[in-house]
Computed example of a mutant assay.
Amino acid sequence: MRARIYKPAKTAMSSGTAKTKQWVLEFMPTAARGIDPLMGWTSSSDMNSQVRLYFDDLEAAQDYAKDRGIEAVVTKAKTRKPNIRPGGYGDNFATDRKGAWTH
C-alpha cells in the first residue's frame, strides 16, 4: 500500500493560513475510477482513497506509516516569508501618514 505525506497549501480563496499547519497522510489510489452508467457519477471501489489522516508533525506521520508497513512518499512544502506589516490594517488609516492618501 502506498501513500503520500504532505502539508496542504493555503486556499486561493483567502489570505489566511488555516488548515495548513498539520501534515496529511493520504493513500494513493489502487483502482481506476469508473463512470456509473446510470447517473454518470465518477466512482471507485477503492475505499482507501477516501481516507486522510492528520498529524501534528512529519515524524508522527512517518512513524505511523512505518509501523503499519505503508510505503510513504514525503512531499516537502514550499515555505514563504510571512508578510507582516508593522502597523497592520490600522496603518491604512494612520494620521501621521508620510505619503499621499491614495484611496
Rank of each mutant, 00 (worst) to 15 (best):
D46P: 03
L58I: 10
A72T: 14
V51H: 06
T42Q: 08
Y64P: 04
A60L: 08
D46N: 14
D63K: 06
V51S: 01
Y64R: 02
Y54Q: 10
D67M: 13
L53C: 11
E71A: 15
I70D: 14
V51F: 12
L38I: 04
S44C: 11
G69A: 14
N48D: 14
Y64D: 03
A61N: 02
D63V: 02
Y54G: 01
M39T: 02
S45M: 08
R52Y: 08
S49L: 09
M47D: 12
I70Q: 11
A60N: 02
N48H: 13
R68I: 03
K66F: 06
M39I: 02
K66Y: 08
Q50Y: 09
G40A: 05
F55I: 04
A65V: 05
T42R: 02
S44Q: 07
R68E: 03
Y64V: 01
Y64G: 03
R68D: 07
W41H: 00
P37E: 10
D63Q: 09
Q62A: 04
R52C: 09
I70E: 15
L58C: 04
R68G: 04
D57Y: 02
D57R: 02
D56V: 02
P37S: 11
A72E: 13
F55Q: 10
G69W: 15
E71D: 15
S45H: 05
D46A: 11
P37H: 12
K66M: 05
P37K: 14
D56G: 09
Y64C: 05
G40Y: 06
S45P: 00
S45K: 10
Y64F: 13
A60R: 05
S45I: 12
D56I: 07
S49D: 08
S45D: 11
T42E: 12
D46H: 11
A65E: 08
T42C: 03
A72S: 15
R52A: 13
Q50R: 13
R52F: 12
R68K: 13
Y54T: 05
D56H: 06
L58M: 02
A65L: 07
Y54V: 06
T42D: 08
D56S: 10
Q50P: 00
M39F: 03
D56A: 05
K66E: 06
R68S: 06
W41K: 00
G40D: 00
S43L: 07
L53V: 07
D63W: 09
I70Y: 14
W41C: 01
L53E: 01
W41R: 00
R68T: 04
M39S: 07
D46K: 10
M39A: 03
G69P: 14
D56C: 05
L53M: 15
S49Y: 03
T42N: 02
A60V: 04
E71T: 15
A60M: 04
G40V: 05
